[in-house]
Simulated scan of single mutants.
Amino acid sequence: MCRPGWAQARVTARRLDDLTRMRRVRDRIDREYAHPLDVLELARTADLPPALLTRQFRLAYGASPYDYLLTRRAERARTLRLHGAES
């Protein structure tokens, strides 16, 4: 028989594992924003279906992986425009 707290501990551990995966995806987007990236490739490396990756990423960060990537690229373009190519 399972102790009452074990089920909650498993749920918490799974949630932390999911957040770790999403952080790795976000870190990869931050590192490789200048390279071609798509949700299928990000999902493949996270070992998740693309729809689940998108749903979990949106829950964790408030935007889809693609929207997050576009935001990073726009921020970089804005920085280059304001400070020149030496940034």
Rank of each mutant, 00 (worst) to 15 (best):
A13W: 06
E86A: 08
R28N: 05
L37Y: 07
A46G: 01
L69H: 00
A7E: 15
A13K: 09
Y68P: 06
L69Q: 00
A77W: 01
L48D: 01
L48Y: 02
T20A: 13
D30Y: 01
P49T: 15
R31N: 10
M1K: 11
M22Q: 08
L53E: 00
E75Q: 11
A9R: 15
A43Q: 02
R23E: 12
M22K: 08
T20F: 03
D67T: 07
L16K: 08
G62E: 01
L53N: 00
H83S: 12
R55Y: 12
E75S: 08
P4K: 04
R78H: 12
L80M: 06
R81K: 10
A43W: 01
T20Q: 12
G5R: 15
I29N: 00
V25G: 04
A85E: 09
E41C: 08
T45C: 03
L16H: 08
R73T: 04
E41D: 14
M1E: 13
Q56A: 11
L80T: 07
L48H: 03
P65H: 04
R15N: 12
T20R: 15
R28I: 00
E32N: 14
R26H: 08
R24F: 00
A46I: 02
L37H: 03
P49A: 15
F57L: 03
R76S: 11
A85R: 13
D17G: 12
E75V: 04
L42H: 02
T71D: 15
L37S: 05
A74R: 14
E41P: 03
D30I: 04
H83W: 11
A51I: 15
A74G: 00
R26G: 10
L80E: 08
A43C: 00
D17M: 11
D38Q: 04
R58E: 13
R10T: 02
D67G: 03
R28K: 06
G62L: 02
T79C: 04
L40W: 07
D38C: 11
T45I: 05
S64W: 12
L40E: 11
D30W: 01
R14G: 02
L70V: 05
A77Q: 06
R72V: 14
S64R: 10
R72P: 01
E75M: 09
L70K: 11
E41N: 10
G5N: 13
R55K: 14
A77M: 06
R81N: 08
Q8Y: 13
D27M: 09
A9L: 15
R21Q: 06
W6L: 12
L19S: 06
T79H: 09
R81L: 13
R76G: 09
